[in-house]
Nucleic acid binder design. Structure first.
Length: 653
RNA sequence: GCCAGCGUAGCUCAGAUGGCAGAGCAACUGAUUUGUAAUCAGUAGGUCGGGGGUUCGAUUCCCUUCGCUGGCUCCA
């Protein structure tokens, strides 16, 4: 029996067709949508599908275009299938596993008798281009799981068999293009020629199903965009990121270095970097004192017994270093909380004393696995701007809220946008379910009270409590975890912390662990890349450099050097017998904000002419005028001179 | 820790199918006295990351170790 159905473009044209007579693509054509060749898939009543699907029921259609987020995901996923096909043709005996779309591209994991190498990529890429030129259509087929298992067994694709068995579905779908068939939910692009711009970028090892106890597979990464221009743009951004790379830039501008004779993951701060740290640390101390924190300082090593008591020994041992002193085992601290607990416990506390807010720029050591180390971002010794707030359960909400405000204030000063995530109870953890629930709710409530939007990160909390993680975004839009706020009911219990309440009875306080910048090392790494080494004046380790034109000007230059140093300006002098252009070039490469040119004119009129690092010259000015200029600029924290694109700090819309 | 790649002067890089190790910049010395991204000349600089092996001979081939890079796992 013929059935007539009505189809329409969401909120627009509609028409009637015979059920099962037209594919989604033909229907879209019939509805005369724009730029049909840029459509990759379709949403049918909200559900995303292949264009080849036949319409059997009344449908509201929304075309999915190439450059939409969903379109790109489909395109990238299909490209991964094309890559898998190319690899199978080039490397007989290879087994395929999974190959999803990811940010900017895709990957596919393979099991082959040898891992893939970078120099395999051009061959694979060439093969992929052949496949794309053949314009092979993607076919979808649904079949019972058992049949699919038989099919993949025959093909020798054991990983696919395992995947289907674990799916526990009666029916599965397969996609085929040319000689290649893959287990896949879809949807896919109509045919391979839709792929216009891709590039294979790197090879890497990856564990089967992310489990380090299972087979090491060989992963190939690629990027893929809707057109060549976007691909070029992406590659250009990579170059830009390389130009800002703190691992290279840091040593070049005299901030820090690493030394293999000292050891992996250990940072040595050179004068400019030590100055930068000092500026940031001083700033932080002042900000904390302003907000009612007290400075404290714990030792670097504490008895192992204490780490056993806190739960670190059971839950964090692999990351800790231990040493023996007089037959006593000690652990080098990986966190700062223990001493803070004992400081609290050193007196009987009344509810009137709470909250106690202990702040420490605490240097910790963690045994990070060698493969994860990277520049300042992952190190084995680092300093946290760490505080522990011990308060009554009633105060918890307000305290979390004020920490969130604190984070917001500081991020604004450094000109960072950020996102928030709540991480819940992990597998390996201590404490009761009730406490975890209570703590998690407290975090959520504080976020909602502050009208902040957040994501949930299941099972990603610390072993002693859930946390709010702050992911800041740098000038290139990359995200970094820095601040974290963690709620803890367990350590107060383990250390038997209490306060005496109005009722004269002992009660258990709650503890918040929190950092604002996180690890100073990582934060400085982010800053270097954010500013490309050209720090705003208040952070610049060297704010200005005096450069003389000839030796006649040295006396005046030295006088200025003293005046400006006395005024508290971080200044250097370049009195070498070099041409001015040479001195300018070097200062420029060092990204020093102000170059103060001193020639005969400046000597006669007793002043200086500043040149900015952007190449602009200011007018001649007296020393006093320059000092005022600098002090005023420092007060702005550089927020006017950098553009990071909008100042949205995660407020709910 | 695992997979892959890499390590030659302070930096950027050449080099040799195994036969005395090179350039530019930086450094140092001298000349030059200079006005906004590199003045000229000269000098010095290396157990080719370390250790072991194969070889008449290793920076080159093999093993091992240290370090770096990109991923995986982990994380501030």
């Amino acid at each position: 029996m013929r059935k007539i159905i009505s189809i329409n473009l969401k909120g627009r044209d509609s028409c009637e067709i015979e059920a099962g007579s037209l594919s989604a693509l033909d229907s879209l054509k019939k509805l005369k949508i724009k730029a049909i060749d840029r459509v990759l898939a379709v949403k049918i009543n909200g559900k995303i599908s292949d264009l080849s699907i036949l319409l059997n029921d009344q449908a509201e259609l929304v075309p999915v275009y190439f450059d939409s987020e969903e379109g790109l995901e489909i395109l990238r996923h299909s490209t991964s299938h094309v890559m898998a096909m190319a690899v199978k043709e080039l490397f007989p005996g290879v087994k395929v596993t999974i190959g999803p779309a990811i940010k900017d591209g895709f990957y596919y994991d393979f099991d082959y008798k040898r891992p893939f190498r970078e120099d395999d990529l051009p061959k694979i890429e060439a093969k992929m281009k052949e496949i794309i030129d053949e314009d092979l259509p993607f076919f979808r087929k649904e079949l019972p799981a058992s049949e699919a298992i038989d099919f993949f067994k025959k093909e020798g694709e054991d990983y696919k068999v395992e995947l289907i068995e674990d799916l526990n579905e009666n029916k599965v779908s397969l996609y085929t293009q040319g000689s290649f068939t893959d287990l896949c939910l879809g949807p896919h692009i109509p045919s391979t020629r839709k792929i216009k711009a891709f590039h294979l970028t790197k090879v890497a090892g990856a564990y089967w199903r992310g489990d380090e106890k299972r087979t090491m597979l060989s992963r190939i990464y690629g990027v893929c965009f809707s057109d060549r221009k976007k691909l070029k743009e992406y590659l250009h951004n990579l170059e830009e990121a390389k130009r800002r790379d703190h691992v290279k830039l840091g040593p070049q501008i005299g901030l820090f270095n690493t030394y293999k004779e000292i050891g992996a993951g250990m940072i040595v701060w050179h004068p400019n970097g030590a100055m930068l740290r000092h500026i940031i640390e001083q700033f932080e101390v002042a900000e904390h004192i302003k907000r009612g924190y007290e400075l404290v300082k714990g030792p670097e090593i504490l008895k192992t017994e204490l780490w056993e008591k806190s739960g670190h020994f059971d839950n964090y041992r692999e990351n800790m270093y231990f040493t023996m002193i007089d037959k006593q085992s000690y652990g080098i601290k990986p966190m700062n909380c223990l001493a803070h607990m004992l400081i609290y416990r050193s007196k009987i506390r009344s509810y009137r004393d709470l909250p106690k807010r202990y702040f420490e720029l605490g240097t910790v050591h963690r045994h990070e696995r060698s493969g994860v180390l990277h520049g300042l971002f992952r190190v084995r010794e680092f300093t946290q701007d760490d505080a522990h707030i011990i308060c009554t359960p009633e105060q918890l909400n307000d305290e979390i809220k004020s920490v969130l405000d604190f984070v917001n204030d500081i991020m604004k000063i450094f000109n960072f946008d950020y996102d928030l995530e709540i991480s819940t109870r992990p597998q390996k953890s201590i404490g009761t379910d009730e406490d975890w629930e209570l703590a998690t709710k407290a975090l959520i409530k504080a976020m909602e009270d502050n009208d902040l939007k957040y994501d949930i990160n299941e099972g990603d909390g610390a072993f002693y409590g859930p946390k709010i993680d702050v992911k800041l975004q740098d000038a290139l839009g990359r995200k970094w975890q820095c601040a974290t706020i963690q709620c803890d009911f367990t350590l107060p219990e383990r250390f038997d912390l209490f306060y005496v309440d109005r009722d004269g009875q002992k009660h258990r306080p709650v503890m918040i662990h929190r950092v604002i910048l996180g690890a100073i090392e990582r934060f400085i790494g982010v800053l270097i890349e954010h500013y490309a080494g050209a720090f705003p004046l208040w952070l610049a380790p060297v704010q200005a450099i005096i450069m003389t034109v000839t030796d006649r000007n040295i006396i005046h230059g030295k006088k200025l050097l003293k005046n400006l140093t006395d005024a508290g300006i971080r200044i250097k002098g370049d009195f070498r017998n070099e041409k001015l252009g040479h001195k300018v070039r070097e200062a420029q490469l060092q990204k020093i904000p102000y170059m103060l040119i001193i020639g005969d004119r400046e000597c006669e009129k007793d002043g200086l002419t500043p040149r900015l690092r952007n190449g602009k010259n200011l007018h001649f000015m007296a020393v006093k005028e320059f000092i005022d200029l600098i002090l005023a600029e420092c007060k702005e924290f550089g927020n006017k001179s950098i553009e990071t694109g909008g100042n949205n700090h995660s407020k709910k819309s």
